[in-house]
Design a protein around this nucleic acid. Sequence first.
DNA 1: CTTAATCCCGACTGATTTAGTAGGGATTAC
DNA 2: GTAATCCCTACTAAATCAGTCGGGATTAAG
Lengths: 158, 158
Amino acid sequence: MILSTKGRYGVRAAFDLALHYGEGPITLKSISERQNLSDPYLEQLIAILRKDGLVTSVRGAQGGYLLSRHPSKISVGDILRSLEGPMAPAECVLDDQDKECIKADYCVTRILWEKIMDSIDKVIDSISLQDMADDYERIEKDYTQEEGENVDKKKSLC
Amino acid sequence: MILSTKGRYGVRAAFDLALHYGEGPITLKSISERQNLSDPYLEQLIAILRKDGLVTSVRGAQGGYLLSRHPSKISVGDILRSLEGPMAPAECVLDDQDKECIKADYCVTRILWEKIMDSIDKVIDSISLQDMADDYERIEKDYTQEEGENVDKKKSLC
DNA sequence: CTTAATCCCGACTGATTTAGTAGGGATTAC
DNA sequence: GTAATCCCTACTAAATCAGTCGGGATTAAG
């Protein structure tokens, strides 16, 4: 049940934008460098976020991307659902008449999928990009300073 | 983020076994008929559950499958993790040194994935097959009696 | 002892999704 | 005018999904 890179990279990109919120347009290239992502690929992901109104773009030289709202008003859930679709474990819990289960609202399995979806939504909607940025300021910065260049090559970022 | 059919069908099969717990070996064929699943495919899924010790088999004529423990002692999480692997949104939260994130335990993104995984685990581990069977006895049976043959062909089971 | 009902196992496959790459077009600050 | 950007479409290799297929092993029942 691993999320695809879309959702994972997308969260990292959005988190990066949150860290630089208020600094004007951030270029795709700087995001992909800091986050270690292929930039043509990241471009596609940001395009989705833009279509969903989570990110705004400024074209031309000195252009770049910005979060369209304050980071405290954008949740990780907004980003994940935009890129991955609804966090439904099964199609039957989607708001789509055709995808509805034959047994409709008295289906035990459906109740299960709904409980799972609700619990995922609850967590991801309760965490904003601002929360992540705050956590970063609190814990991550200290470490990165004292860290040398001796990173284990087998390991990657998440 | 839709679960694969493995997990979804597997839960239905396990639920079916829970409903017939105590009735001796249940044949694959009867499960696949009741649950409307292809039986060679279901066979593969049950093989996984068997290898993970959740289901026991009895070979030969009059054989079939049984839950290896009382339905109240098997959670939906046991079934799902057996078939789908750990409910981790990213590899870095797995207990595997090599898959660990470079930034290890001070990575903000990792904390996020962990929170999501924990919340999924909490729900799926809190629901046992017995719980599902009980729900079924309570709500589903009433409906199926009064229901006619007029099912919407576009819809399926979940 | 034969037979039918079962489970058991590995190989194969078409369709879809994933995780990108490639290449060029449009826009704008300088 | 030009360099730095974002914007868009098309392509692709590899992996995964969702099965199918065919035969082998085991055992209860007659």
